[in-house]
Design a protein around this nucleic acid. Structure first.
Length: 230
DNA sequence: GCGACAG
DNA sequence: ATCTTGTCGC
């Protein structure tokens, strides 16, 4: 089985073949224990640069207080291809995960989990490889159809793809676009939606992902190279 | 064949 | 995702 640190050697065709193998390792069983902590993961980079800044922020649940933060500077050679996002982001995110001393009970990824054409979005992929409970929360749609998005915070409508409910379109803030929630690994869609609801704060983006986004941008700017790319 | 297409 | 100022709506 190809490990994350080898993803940059794969061709898109080989990457898709690996997804077909990994999809069968994903478990959508109910979350076993109540959660006390949750992690948010994200990456940042400069335009036209393969240097990436990956980070994970661990927060208390449901208090949403930042407990730990970890980051790493790496390279992302695999290009962004819709449906193959995980091959670009997982290598560095997995390194950050491995150097985290205090692992969170669940991890929220910036992207989809089951709401993927082959049911292996970055959240399901990361969860299957790391063997931990994960969920995906994307800002835009990759696949699936749904009725009019809810207008009231906390409300959701199902996201359907090929007669299957693959996720939920959730309103996290009034007068804002919704977010797309789906199960990643070791939890159900119902678990995922319940978790995101408790992570809703003052902004559209749920706290774990929002704090992770802030964190990696802070790391990138601190690393200095915000303006003219080399 | 044509259009869609996470970050 | 990233680059960027103003601007429209609540």
């Amino acid at each position: 089985m190809v490990a994350p640190d080898q993803y940059d050697t794969l061709t898109p065709t080989e990457a898709i073949a690996l997804q077909q193998e990994l999809r069968h390792q994903v478990q959508l069983t109910p979350l076993e224990h109540p959660i006390r902590t949750i992690g948010g993961a994200d990456i940042s980079f400069n335009k036209h640069s393969e240097t990436v800044y990956a980070g994970i922020v661990v927060l208390s649940f449901p208090d949403m207080k930042v407990l730990h933060r970890e980051s790493i500077v790496g390279k992302a050679t695999f290009p962004y291809v819709p449906g193959l996002l995980s091959f670009r982001e997982i290598p560095t995110l997995m390194q950050v995960w491995n150097q985290l001393e205090q692992k969170p009970d669940v991890l929220m990824l910036d992207g989809h989990g089951q709401a993927h054409p082959r049911r292996l979005g970055i959240a399901s992929h990361f969860g299957a490889v790391a063997g931990i409970p994960t969920l995906g929360c994307g800002k835009s749609l990759l696949v699936g159809k749904h009725d009019a998005p809810p207008q009231t915070p906390g409300d959701a409508v199902p996201l359907i793809h090929k007669d299957e409910t693959i996720g939920a379109v959730l309103c996290t803030k009034a007068k804002c676009n919704p977010v797309y929630v789906s199960a990643g690994h070791l939890m159900t869609l119902r678990n995922a939606v319940a978790i995101v609801r408790k992570c809703m704060g003052k902004y559209r983006i749920p706290e774990p992902t929002r704090r992770a986004h802030e964190w990696v941008n802070e790391v990138r700017l601190a690393h200095g190279e915000s303006k003219v790319p080399e």
